[in-house]
Design a protein around this nucleic acid. Structure first.
Length: 585
RNA sequence: GCCCCUGUAGCUCAAAUGGACAGAGCACUGGACUUCUAAUCCAACGGUUACAGGUUCGAAUCCUGUCAGGGGUGCCA
């Protein structure tokens, strides 16, 4: 937003440094930490230090300070858009005219609206594969982190200018599916799912898993597996029907989470291509075939010439049945056959890091030039207190629908208390927005590499650094505009003596564009989560210290602009997290 | 054994990628609703950034080592 001023002043600084015998200095602009007014800072330590390194006899801090002072002296009155400058602690601080800066930021935000902070189109397509649930099974809080993270990453990448393809890869075959069908045929023939598909599917699965422990049941399941392998039409039909139930269940969840997918892949579709590919690998001499005594595997360390780095990748079991790797290799190829991808991202938990590395290396060995465009976005697990990993088979899970139901009920009770006059329908909407927002924010506001310990109290705490706090700031802003009867107040000048709360709020708004780029580059929604909270905090501070409606007409005029702009930026940052921004709550 | 991740306030987490006094939220204590919604705000409290060295003008951040926790490591997904 201030590139022009930056460039002008930069060339002037360089000119001065030339006279000091310093050429090609690397100038760095950063934020001035504390501000009653604001501007940019240029640290001169790096320059002084490089002088010292090149043999000149200088004391770095003093020299840095002297340079900053020298620059100011040389600039004189020609500050090129800045209002004044200071030399402090070896930093050159350049300040903007408060009135100009404020007006410029607010005008820009309101002109661009929901486009503010959005990067121009890059003409690059990125695929993000996430969620990847197994059909016929539960959807628990562990799965939730993946969907929420993947969904937010997609939104951020889009905002950063990429074309994004949301891909899902469903585990629709395997022992778990056979077990499910066995239990269904034996104990629940003809039954149909109720309202909540996933919950019902999971009950049958959990029961099947329990019964599977009995040897005679296991034998029956194996029999069914054999029929499946022979493509028994009756079993195939049942599989298709029940799989569809699962998909419908997942879609209920996705739509509740405001998630949707552009491309769905099924494990069942890549199993056969995978088997053929394995044969090729063997023929090419890349894979070793030890069947029937051993499996088919690629000795990556041996091929690459490393030790204990890539280990070996088993691509087919000794009995000829398929593994993850059997299918992931053809799937990677299929993705690039279908799309021209600048990047293919896999949102998968950190335990599969080595496996992902093996797959990527294998693609490189196969000669695909796009192998270096594969990226594993690893995230840590959601554990229960006491570091207990959620696992359906252990029964240590918090199910998605249980959590959402509880959270929504609590949110609903608060809406009831705050806004009893609202219609039931609106109350429900708000409760859902708040409940889901809170869950999403909890997942997104910690770094991908950090384990989330799921705690009911923390997940259901709507106070403090949480989504409802941010949503509430958005609501308050909307409320002011509604009462003013002006949702897009006309442009006006800003005064030079703004309150600190106003300055801080404006300052945070300017950070959105850069933070979007950083979040996209690092695949870290946390960056946006932090900004959203800080914006809300600054807005609440402003709300508390600055009257908008009941004040001088001049003040009211520019503050209405400020409120509208703040509301926009808060809404945008919530949007990037996939969190709804209600207008009442 | 080897590899990866983590260790910051009582608890849960940040820290603009090496910069100005390490910041928030919970919890605890004391204040603020006749005023644009108190799902809010203000104040107070709370730190040898696991430990020991090193690199440099400057380190939570980079390097080495140690300790603690978690994960991975040829036919689980």
């Amino acid at each position: 937003m201030f590139e022009k001023e930056k460039l002008t002043i930069e060339s002037k600084i360089r000119a001065y440094l030339q006279t000091e015998g310093i050429k090609n200095a690397s100038l760095e602009f950063r934020q001035i930490p504390f501000s009653g007014e604001w501007g940019m800072a240029v640290p001169l330590f790096p320059i002084a230090a490089s002088e010292a390194r090149s043999g000149k006899k200088v004391i770095v801090p003093q020299r840095a300070q002297a340079l900053a002072e020298g620059i100011i002296a040389s600039l004189g009155d020609s500050l090129g858009g800045f209002s004044h400058a200071e030399a402090v602690n070896g930093y050159l601080n350049l300040y903007f005219s408060t009135a100009d800066y404020a007006r410029r930021v607010v005008d820009t935000v309101l002109d661009q609206g929901s486009e503010f902070g959005k990067n121009p189109d890059r003409d690059e397509t990125v695929m993000v594969e996430y969620s990847q649930p197994n059909t016929h099974k539960a959807f628990h809080v562990g799965h939730l982190r993946n969907v929420i993270l993947g969904g937010s990453i997609c939104r951020i990448l889009e905002f950063a200018g990429y074309d994004v393809i949301r891909a899902n890869y469903l585990g629709d075959i395997g022992l778990h599916v056979i077990k499910w069908m066995w239990n269904y045929l034996k104990n629940h023939p003809g039954e149909e799912p109720g309202e909540d598909h996933t919950h019902w599917m999971n009950q049958i699965y959990a029961e099947a898993d329990r019964l599977f422990q009995e040897p005679e049941n296991e034998a029956e399941v194996r029999e069914l597996y054999a029929r499946w392998n022979q493509r028994d039409p009756e079993i195939l039909a049942l599989w298709k029907k029940t799989r569809q139930w699962s998909l419908e269940g997942f879609n209920q969840i996705y739509s509740q989470l405001d998630e949707s997918f552009d491309r769905i892949y099924f494990e069942s579709e890549v199993e056969d291509p995978g088997a053929h590919l394995v044969e090729q690998l063997i023929q090419q001499g890349l894979a070793k075939d030890e069947r029937p005594e051993g499996p088919v595997f690629i000795d990556l360390d041996e091929i690459v010439g490393t030790q204990d780095e890539y280990r070996v990748l088993v691509v087919l079991r000794s009995d000829g049945s398929s593994l993850y790797a059997t299918k992931d290799i053809p799937l990677a190829i299929q993705k690039f056959n279908e799309y021209d991808l600048a990047k293919s991202i896999y949102v998968i938990d950190v335990r599969q890091s080595l496996y992902m590395k093996q797959i990527f290396k294998t693609m490189a060995l196969l000669g695909y030039e796009w192998a270096d465009r594969l990226y594993h976005l690893a995230y840590e697990l959601v554990n229960l207190p006491g570091n207990v990993t959620m696992a359906s088979r252990e029964g240590t899970v918090v199910l998605f629908d249980d959590l959402v139901r509880e959270a929504t009920q609590r949110a609903r009770a608060i809406v009831e208390q705050k806004n009893p006059e609202l219609s039931e329908e609106i109350k429900d909407e708000i409760a859902e927005a708040v409940a889901l927002g809170a869950l999403k924010y909890t997942m997104l506001s910690r770094d991908n590499t950090k384990v989330v310990t799921f705690d009911w109290d923390a997940a259901l705490d709507f106070n403090g650094q949480a989504a409802p706090y941010i949503q509430y700031a958005h609501v308050r802003a909307g409320s002011i505009l509604r009462k003013a009867g002006e949702f897009s107040p006309p442009a006006v000048d800003f005064p030079g003596d703004l309150e600190k709360a106003e300055v801080d709020l404006i300052e945070l708004m300017t950070r959105l564009p850069a933070e979007v780029l950083r979040a996209a580059a690092e695949y870290r929604p946390l960056v946006i989560a932090n900004l959203a909270f800080e914006l809300a905090k600054a807005f609440n501070d402003f709300y508390n210290t600055c009257q908008v409606l009941n004040t001088d007409p001049d003040v009211r005029a520019y503050r209405l602009r400020l409120v509208a702009a703040a509301q926009q930026v808060i809404a945008s940052s919530l949007g990037l997290l996939g969190i709804r921004a209600p207008s009442v709550m």
